Simulated scan of single mutants.
Amino acid sequence: MRKLYVIGIGAGDPDQVTMQAVKAMRRAEAFFVIGKGDQKRELVEVRTAILAEHVEGPARVIEIADPPRDRAPADYTEVVRDWHERRAELLEAAFDQVEGTGAILVWGDPALYDSTLRMVEHVLARGRSAFDYEVIPGVTSVAALAARHRMVLHRIGEPVHVTTGRRLREEGLGEGSTVVMLDGDCSFTEVPGDDVRIWWGAYLGMPDETLIEGPLREVEKEIVTRRAELRAAKGWIMDIYLLRAAEVRHAES
């Protein structure tokens, strides 16, 4: 039976690729890369550089054009499901070109805010292709953010809430620390309070990596401005941040 590896390759630093990922890459005969258009060509180039470093000989790369989707839909869940289905159709067609073992290189980790595994399950559910698949974990952008800021994600005994910019606007800060991903609207500017601190990072692990941290009300304008500058210069941006309110200290009884 044919096999597909779904390989997490880290948040952007080629040195974050694990030995388990390298071994899986060396077993694969073809690599599927989901392209995001010319503006995000650098994301494809990083994957190509990783393959050149870890795989002997020229790697067979099959690029899959990511289908467009509505970024501000009335029914977000339904639009995303349709997008996943269209992605599955493209992956199925690409995998049909491979007789043996294929691999998909996934930014960060396949288990965290990534649709690749859902796409693979969609392909299998269609019943037209039969294959086994294995997931190789990668360094998440959450872990990379914490490492670059030299911080622990949570205080003693407190939880960590991982969410999106859209949910942050709808629900506000969770208990403990809140990590926010997929935020194109700088939703942190809508978080109330003067006691919140932010740790922000863009292009983690890449040459253009940018870090800002401090009291939210003091640095939010700097982050908004810097983010806009970076996006304008590169045509795309990948960023993530952690928010945390000041620790509540209970008086001794």
Rank of each mutant, 00 (worst) to 15 (best):
residue 104 I to R: 00
residue 174 G to H: 09
residue 153 L to G: 06
residue 155 R to H: 10
residue 122 H to K: 13
residue 114 D to P: 00
residue 160 V to Q: 06
residue 105 L to A: 11
residue 134 E to N: 01
residue 130 A to H: 08
residue 156 I to D: 07
residue 173 L to C: 08
residue 164 T to V: 13
residue 148 R to T: 00
residue 125 A to Q: 14
residue 121 E to A: 08
residue 116 T to V: 14
residue 164 T to P: 05
residue 124 L to K: 15
residue 127 G to L: 08
residue 106 V to Q: 03
residue 178 T to S: 14
residue 177 S to Q: 11
residue 148 R to C: 00
residue 177 S to T: 15
residue 124 L to V: 06
residue 147 A to Y: 09
residue 145 L to Y: 05
residue 169 R to N: 09
residue 157 G to D: 11
residue 109 D to G: 07
residue 151 M to Y: 00
residue 165 G to F: 04
residue 119 M to G: 05
residue 110 P to F: 03
residue 140 T to V: 03
residue 139 V to I: 15
residue 146 A to V: 04
residue 105 L to G: 10
residue 159 P to S: 10
residue 119 M to R: 02
residue 173 L to E: 11
residue 114 D to M: 04
residue 152 V to Q: 13
residue 167 R to L: 14
residue 134 E to T: 14
residue 131 F to W: 06
residue 161 H to F: 01
residue 138 G to H: 03
residue 137 P to I: 13
residue 147 A to G: 14
residue 174 G to T: 13
residue 126 R to Y: 01
residue 176 G to P: 13
residue 159 P to R: 03
residue 128 R to L: 12
residue 141 S to R: 00
residue 145 L to F: 06
residue 142 V to E: 04
residue 130 A to E: 15
residue 168 L to I: 05
residue 178 T to K: 11
residue 163 T to Y: 01
residue 113 Y to Q: 05
residue 169 R to H: 01
residue 150 R to Q: 14
residue 140 T to L: 07
residue 156 I to S: 06
residue 131 F to N: 11
residue 140 T to E: 05
residue 154 H to W: 02
residue 169 R to I: 06
residue 127 G to D: 12
residue 128 R to G: 02
residue 166 R to N: 09
residue 161 H to C: 06
residue 115 S to P: 02
residue 131 F to S: 12
residue 172 G to M: 08
residue 136 I to G: 05
residue 176 G to C: 13
residue 144 A to C: 12
residue 139 V to T: 15
residue 174 G to R: 10
residue 130 A to V: 12
residue 177 S to C: 07
residue 128 R to K: 15
residue 143 A to V: 02
residue 151 M to I: 14
residue 107 W to I: 01
residue 123 V to H: 06
residue 130 A to N: 09
residue 105 L to H: 02
residue 171 E to T: 13
residue 159 P to G: 06
residue 166 R to W: 12
residue 119 M to I: 15
residue 177 S to I: 08
residue 170 E to K: 11
residue 146 A to Y: 07
residue 111 A to N: 14
residue 111 A to G: 10
residue 178 T to P: 07
residue 143 A to W: 00
residue 161 H to V: 15
residue 164 T to I: 11
residue 109 D to Q: 13
residue 159 P to K: 02
